[in-house]
Protein backbone atom coordinates (compact mmCIF):
# COMPACT_ATOMS: atom_id res chain seq x y z
CA UNK A 1 0.00 0.00 0.00
CA UNK A 2 1.10 3.54 -0.63
CA UNK A 3 1.83 5.52 2.50
CA UNK A 4 -0.97 7.93 3.45
CA UNK A 5 -0.50 11.38 1.92
CA UNK A 6 -0.56 13.13 5.29
CA UNK A 7 2.35 10.97 6.45
CA UNK A 8 4.31 11.72 3.30
CA UNK A 9 3.75 15.46 3.68
CA UNK A 10 4.71 15.28 7.36
CA UNK A 11 7.90 13.38 6.55
CA UNK A 12 8.89 15.91 3.87
CA UNK A 13 8.15 18.80 6.22
CA UNK A 14 10.18 17.41 9.12
CA UNK A 15 13.06 16.16 6.96
CA UNK A 16 13.14 19.45 5.06
CA UNK A 17 13.35 21.40 8.29
CA UNK A 18 16.13 19.17 9.66
CA UNK A 19 18.12 19.66 6.45
CA UNK A 20 17.58 23.43 6.42
CA UNK A 21 18.70 23.69 10.06
CA UNK A 22 21.80 21.63 9.25
CA UNK A 23 22.64 24.00 6.40
CA UNK A 24 22.09 27.05 8.61
CA UNK A 25 24.30 25.55 11.30
CA UNK A 26 27.02 24.88 8.75
CA UNK A 27 26.82 28.52 7.69
CA UNK A 28 27.58 29.56 11.24
CA UNK A 29 24.18 29.91 12.91
CA UNK A 30 24.43 28.84 16.54
CA UNK A 31 21.65 26.81 18.09
CA UNK A 32 21.05 26.38 21.77
CA UNK A 33 21.43 22.89 23.23
CA UNK A 34 20.17 22.33 26.73
CA UNK A 35 22.48 20.75 29.23
CA UNK A 36 22.35 16.95 29.47
CA UNK A 37 23.93 15.91 32.79
CA UNK A 38 24.43 12.33 31.62
CA UNK A 39 26.56 13.46 28.71
CA UNK A 40 28.59 15.78 30.94
CA UNK A 41 29.24 12.74 33.10
CA UNK A 42 30.90 10.94 30.19
CA UNK A 43 33.77 13.41 30.19
CA UNK A 44 34.02 13.36 33.99
CA UNK A 45 34.12 9.57 33.95
CA UNK A 46 36.99 9.51 31.51
CA UNK A 47 38.87 11.89 33.82
CA UNK A 48 38.14 9.64 36.78
CA UNK A 49 39.33 6.58 34.88
CA UNK A 50 42.57 8.42 34.08
CA UNK A 51 43.11 9.13 37.75
CA UNK A 52 42.33 5.55 38.75
CA UNK A 53 44.33 4.00 35.92
CA UNK A 54 41.52 1.62 35.12
CA UNK A 55 39.89 0.92 31.77
CA UNK A 56 36.62 2.17 30.36
CA UNK A 57 34.04 -0.17 28.88
CA UNK A 58 31.96 0.90 25.90
CA UNK A 59 28.99 -1.08 24.54
CA UNK A 60 27.33 -0.04 21.27
CA UNK A 61 24.24 -2.18 21.86
CA UNK A 62 22.99 -5.34 20.28
CA UNK A 63 21.70 -4.16 16.92
CA UNK A 64 23.38 -4.10 13.55
CA UNK A 65 24.67 -1.25 11.43
CA UNK A 66 21.32 -0.85 9.72
CA UNK A 67 19.76 0.36 12.96
CA UNK A 68 19.88 3.99 14.05
CA UNK A 69 20.57 3.36 17.78
CA UNK A 70 23.77 1.55 16.77
CA UNK A 71 24.85 4.41 14.50
CA UNK A 72 24.14 6.85 17.33
CA UNK A 73 26.16 4.70 19.74
CA UNK A 74 29.07 4.60 17.31
CA UNK A 75 28.99 8.40 16.96
CA UNK A 76 29.49 8.63 20.71
CA UNK A 77 32.17 5.92 20.58
CA UNK A 78 34.16 8.07 18.17
CA UNK A 79 34.21 10.95 20.64
CA UNK A 80 34.94 8.66 23.59
CA UNK A 81 37.77 6.94 21.70
CA UNK A 82 39.34 10.30 20.79
CA UNK A 83 39.13 11.44 24.40
CA UNK A 84 40.42 8.20 25.95
CA UNK A 85 43.40 8.15 23.60
CA UNK A 86 44.14 11.76 24.54
CA UNK A 87 43.84 10.95 28.24
CA UNK A 88 45.83 7.71 27.85
CA UNK A 89 43.02 5.55 29.21
CA UNK A 90 42.44 2.01 28.00
CA UNK A 91 39.14 1.61 26.15
CA UNK A 92 37.48 -1.79 25.86
CA UNK A 93 34.63 -2.22 23.40
CA UNK A 94 32.47 -5.35 23.47
CA UNK A 95 30.12 -5.77 20.56
CA UNK A 96 27.22 -8.07 19.88
CA UNK A 97 26.65 -7.77 16.17
CA UNK A 98 29.55 -9.02 14.01
CA UNK A 99 28.71 -6.58 11.23
CA UNK A 100 29.85 -3.76 13.49
CA UNK A 101 33.27 -5.35 14.08
CA UNK A 102 35.27 -3.60 11.39
CA UNK A 103 33.77 -0.15 11.89
CA UNK A 104 34.32 -0.28 15.67
CA UNK A 105 37.90 -1.36 15.12
CA UNK A 106 38.42 1.45 12.62
CA UNK A 107 36.88 4.08 14.88
CA UNK A 108 39.18 3.19 17.76
CA UNK A 109 42.21 2.72 15.53
CA UNK A 110 41.55 6.14 13.93
CA UNK A 111 41.49 7.72 17.35
CA UNK A 112 44.98 6.35 18.00
CA UNK A 113 46.09 7.33 14.51
CA UNK A 114 44.76 10.84 15.04
CA UNK A 115 46.93 11.12 18.17
CA UNK A 116 49.93 9.63 16.29
CA UNK A 117 49.92 6.64 18.66
CA UNK A 118 48.76 3.90 16.33
CA UNK A 119 51.28 1.47 17.80
CA UNK A 120 49.44 1.71 21.15
CA UNK A 121 46.22 0.39 19.65
CA UNK A 122 45.50 -3.13 20.87
CA UNK A 123 42.98 -4.96 18.71
CA UNK A 124 42.30 -7.36 21.58
CA UNK A 125 40.39 -4.59 23.33
CA UNK A 126 37.74 -4.82 20.62
CA UNK A 127 35.90 -7.94 21.76
CA UNK A 128 33.19 -9.88 20.03
CA UNK A 129 30.91 -11.05 22.84
CA UNK A 130 28.32 -13.24 21.20
CA UNK A 131 25.14 -13.02 19.17
CA UNK A 132 23.29 -14.72 22.03
CA UNK A 133 22.20 -12.26 24.68
CA UNK A 134 22.99 -14.56 27.59
CA UNK A 135 26.49 -15.30 26.31
CA UNK A 136 26.97 -11.62 25.47
CA UNK A 137 26.03 -10.68 29.03
CA UNK A 138 28.41 -13.34 30.41
CA UNK A 139 31.26 -12.01 28.28
CA UNK A 140 30.70 -8.47 29.54
CA UNK A 141 30.32 -9.55 33.16
CA UNK A 142 33.67 -11.30 32.74
CA UNK A 143 35.31 -8.15 31.39
CA UNK A 144 33.77 -5.96 34.10
CA UNK A 145 34.89 -8.25 36.91
CA UNK A 146 38.35 -9.04 35.56
CA UNK A 147 39.28 -5.51 34.55
CA UNK A 148 37.45 -3.73 37.41
CA UNK A 149 36.43 -0.99 35.00
CA UNK A 150 36.35 2.62 36.16
CA UNK A 151 33.50 3.60 33.88
CA UNK A 152 30.95 1.98 31.63
CA UNK A 153 29.22 3.67 28.70
CA UNK A 154 26.27 1.80 27.24
CA UNK A 155 25.01 3.62 24.15
CA UNK A 156 22.64 1.75 21.87
CA UNK A 157 19.88 -0.77 21.97
CA UNK A 158 19.82 -3.43 24.67
CA UNK A 159 17.77 -6.40 25.75
CA UNK A 160 17.44 -8.09 29.12
CA UNK A 161 21.23 -8.07 29.56
CA UNK A 162 20.96 -4.38 30.48
CA UNK A 163 20.44 -5.12 34.16
CA UNK A 164 23.03 -7.92 34.27
CA UNK A 165 25.67 -5.60 32.84
CA UNK A 166 24.84 -2.48 34.81
CA UNK A 167 24.47 -4.30 38.13
CA UNK A 168 27.94 -5.77 37.72
CA UNK A 169 29.28 -2.35 36.82
CA UNK A 170 27.67 -1.00 39.98
CA UNK A 171 29.28 -3.75 42.08
CA UNK A 172 32.79 -2.89 40.87
CA UNK A 173 32.11 0.79 41.62
CA UNK A 174 32.18 2.00 38.03
CA UNK A 175 30.53 5.25 36.97
CA UNK A 176 27.98 4.17 34.45
CA UNK A 177 26.20 6.17 31.77
CA UNK A 178 23.56 4.42 29.72
CA UNK A 179 21.59 5.68 26.75
CA UNK A 180 18.96 3.59 25.08
CA UNK A 181 15.83 3.92 23.00
CA UNK A 182 14.38 0.69 24.40
CA UNK A 183 11.61 1.82 26.70
CA UNK A 184 11.52 -1.50 28.57
CA UNK A 185 15.23 -1.37 29.43
CA UNK A 186 15.24 2.23 30.67
CA UNK A 187 13.98 1.35 34.19
CA UNK A 188 16.70 -1.28 34.60
CA UNK A 189 19.39 1.18 33.63
CA UNK A 190 17.81 3.79 35.91
CA UNK A 191 18.14 1.40 38.83
CA UNK A 192 21.77 0.50 38.31
CA UNK A 193 23.45 3.35 36.41
CA UNK A 194 24.54 6.76 37.60
CA UNK A 195 23.18 8.58 34.56
CA UNK A 196 20.65 7.50 31.97
CA UNK A 197 19.92 9.20 28.68
CA UNK A 198 16.32 8.48 27.83
CA UNK A 199 15.13 7.80 24.31
CA UNK A 200 16.07 10.57 21.89
CA UNK A 201 18.86 11.83 24.17
CA UNK A 202 20.87 8.98 22.70
CA UNK A 203 20.73 10.79 19.37
CA UNK A 204 21.44 14.15 20.98
CA UNK A 205 24.48 12.90 22.91
CA UNK A 206 26.85 13.01 19.98
CA UNK A 207 25.77 16.56 19.05
CA UNK A 208 26.20 17.69 22.65
CA UNK A 209 29.66 16.13 22.91
CA UNK A 210 31.12 17.16 19.56
CA UNK A 211 29.23 20.43 18.93
CA UNK A 212 29.64 19.73 15.24
CA UNK A 213 27.41 22.10 13.24
CA UNK A 214 25.82 19.23 11.29
CA UNK A 215 24.75 17.46 14.44
CA UNK A 216 23.70 20.58 16.29
CA UNK A 217 21.64 21.77 13.32
CA UNK A 218 20.06 18.35 13.06
CA UNK A 219 19.19 18.48 16.76
CA UNK A 220 17.46 21.79 16.25
CA UNK A 221 15.53 20.28 13.35
CA UNK A 222 14.45 17.44 15.62
CA UNK A 223 12.99 19.97 18.03
CA UNK A 224 10.90 21.41 15.20
CA UNK A 225 9.70 17.88 14.36
CA UNK A 226 8.66 17.35 17.96
CA UNK A 227 6.84 20.67 17.93
CA UNK A 228 4.87 19.58 14.84
CA UNK A 229 3.98 16.26 16.48
CA UNK A 230 2.96 18.05 19.66
CA UNK A 231 0.69 20.32 17.64
CA UNK A 232 -0.92 17.31 15.95
CA UNK A 233 -1.40 15.61 19.33
CA UNK A 234 -3.09 18.69 20.80
CA UNK A 235 -5.38 19.19 17.78
CA UNK A 236 -6.08 15.45 17.65
CA UNK A 237 -6.93 15.35 21.34
CA UNK A 238 -9.37 18.23 20.97
CA UNK A 239 -10.95 16.63 17.87
CA UNK A 240 -11.19 13.25 19.63
CA UNK A 241 -12.84 14.87 22.63
CA UNK A 242 -15.36 16.68 20.44
CA UNK A 243 -16.06 13.46 18.52
CA UNK A 244 -16.52 11.49 21.74
CA UNK A 245 -18.90 14.10 23.15
CA UNK A 246 -20.83 14.32 19.89
CA UNK A 247 -24.38 13.07 20.17
CA UNK A 248 -24.35 11.61 16.67
CA UNK A 249 -22.44 8.57 15.53
CA UNK A 250 -19.93 7.66 14.22
CA UNK A 251 -17.82 9.59 16.76
CA UNK A 252 -14.78 9.53 14.50
CA UNK A 253 -11.69 11.61 15.14
CA UNK A 254 -11.03 13.26 11.75
CA UNK A 255 -7.36 13.93 12.55
CA UNK A 256 -6.75 10.21 12.96
CA UNK A 257 -8.55 9.62 9.67
CA UNK A 258 -6.47 12.23 7.84
CA UNK A 259 -3.21 10.75 9.14
CA UNK A 260 -4.15 7.20 8.17
CA UNK A 261 -5.78 7.92 4.81
Amino acid sequence: MDAPWAQRILAVLICGTILSRILRAKKGREFFIRRIPGVDAVEESIGRATEMGKPILFLPGILGLDQMPTIAGLSVLKWVADRTVKMMVRLIVVFFEPSTASIITEIVRDAYRGASREEAFDERDIIFGSTREDAFASAIIGVVQREKIAAGFYFGSFGYESLLISENGFRVGAIQVAATTDVIQIPFFLCACDYVLIGEELYAASAYLTREPVQVGSLSGQDFGKFVLLLIIIIGSIAATIAALSAHPPNINPIEGILLK
Binding site: A11, I14, C15, I18, M68, P69, I71, A72, T181, V183, I186, I198, G199, E200, L202, Y203, A204, S218, L219, G221, Q222, G225, K226, L229
Partner: peptide, 12 residues
Protein backbone atom coordinates in the same frame (compact mmCIF):
# COMPACT_ATOMS: atom_id res chain seq x y z
CA UNK B 1 9.65 8.69 24.40
CA UNK B 2 8.66 6.89 21.21
CA UNK B 3 7.97 10.16 19.38
CA UNK B 4 11.36 11.55 20.41
CA UNK B 5 13.12 8.37 19.34
CA UNK B 6 11.32 8.40 16.00
CA UNK B 7 12.34 11.98 15.23
CA UNK B 8 15.89 11.34 16.45
CA UNK B 9 16.21 8.25 14.28
CA UNK B 10 14.83 10.19 11.32
CA UNK B 11 17.42 12.94 11.74
CA UNK B 12 20.21 10.41 12.12
Amino acid sequence: IGFGVFIGALAM
